[in-house]
């Protein structure tokens, strides 16, 4: 959790919005620091988190989490975190004999599969406990990242359907949040990815877009972050407010500053 980003987003772990879809997007840079931010943020906010990690292993997230002040191992033991490790599961599903359905079942199927098993997994993971008293605040689904599903042979429409189902369940029924990362393919003409990104931008409440600098590599400024709120018309705050900040990623935190105001320049 980066305090400076919390300030920009006007959020604290004590005050969590509910029922929101947040889209993280990165173009020509790596936006994974945003995923780490939201993971530690929701764990600190005492939310029940289902983390679908498709791109890195558990230990990576765990070690970074420790730098940000949360322990994924203990969160998993307490039942606060349900961690789905895509890399490990893909090996399992590929090399074992056919048997019970698996969230990544489509990896084995010759025809275009669907993401229903993965949705079932998410629904099971975030289902409220029956005994009435709520141990965790609200459920959160975190996906890193959705573009991998496209690489694994799913169509953009199937992924959009998956997000739609998750929204209906997590955001609406359970009053929780969804945070998903999608790469922006930029000028590579990845049509599927563009469909996915545009479709998600259309329905998300908050878009955080990390971009590499147009002028190229810089040691002191790692990129810029655009924040776009999409709020209803009657909302008191300024409508469709878009903000741009530049950032520098440090060892344990990320510092944000206005464009061109890097401490190294001034």
């Amino acid at each position: 959790m980066f305090p400076e980003l919390n300030n920009l987003l006007n959020a604290t772990p004590d005050k969590v919005d509910q029922g929101k879809l947040t889209l993280l997007c990165d173009a020509k840079t790596d936006g994974s620091f945003l995923v780490h931010h939201f993971l530690s943020f929701y764990l600190k906010a005492n939310c029940k988190v289902c983390f679908v990690a498709l791109i890195q292993s558990f230990s990576h997230y765990n070690i970074v989490g420790q730098k940000l002040g949360v322990s994924l191992t203990t969160a998993r033991e307490r039942g606060q975190l349900v961690f789905f490790e895509g890399l490990r599961s893909s090996v399992d599903v590929f090399f074992r004999a056919k048997g019970e359905p698996h969230p990544l079942q489509f990896l084995r199927e010759a025809s275009a599969g669907n993401l229903q098993p993965l949705y079932e997994f998410v629904r099971e993971a975030l289902r409220p406990e029956d005994n009435g008293e709520a141990a965790w605040r609200c459920p959160v689904l975190l996906v890193d990242d959705l573009s991998v599903l496209l690489s694994l042979g799913m169509g953009a429409v199937a992924v959009l359907d998956f997000v739609h189902y998750c929204r209906a369940t997590v955001c609406w029924k359970l009053q929780g949040n969804i945070v998903a990362l999608v790469h922006d393919s930029g000028d590579t003409q990845d049509e599927e990815n563009d469909i996915l990104l545009n479709g998600l931008s259309h329905q998300s409440h908050l878009i955080l877009r990390a971009e590499g600098l147009a002028t190229g590599f810089c040691r002191d400024v790692h990129g810029q972050l655009r924040i776009l709120w999409r709020r209803p018309l009657w909302h008191p705050a300024q409508r469709d407010r878009s903000l741009t900040y530049q950032y520098k990623i440090q060892d344990k935190t990320v510092s944000f500053f206005a464009k061109g105001m890097s401490p190294a320049v001034l």
Binding site: S57, G86, L87, R88, S89, S90, V91, F94, L107, V148, S151, L152, G153
Partner: peptide, 17 residues
């Protein structure tokens, strides 16, 4: 066209463990 990316993904899964 997904063969190559799927192969890389599963290979990476094998390597990570």
């Amino acid at each position: 066209s997904y063969s190559l990316t799927k192969f890389l993904y599963i290979l990476r899964g094998l390597l990570r463990t």
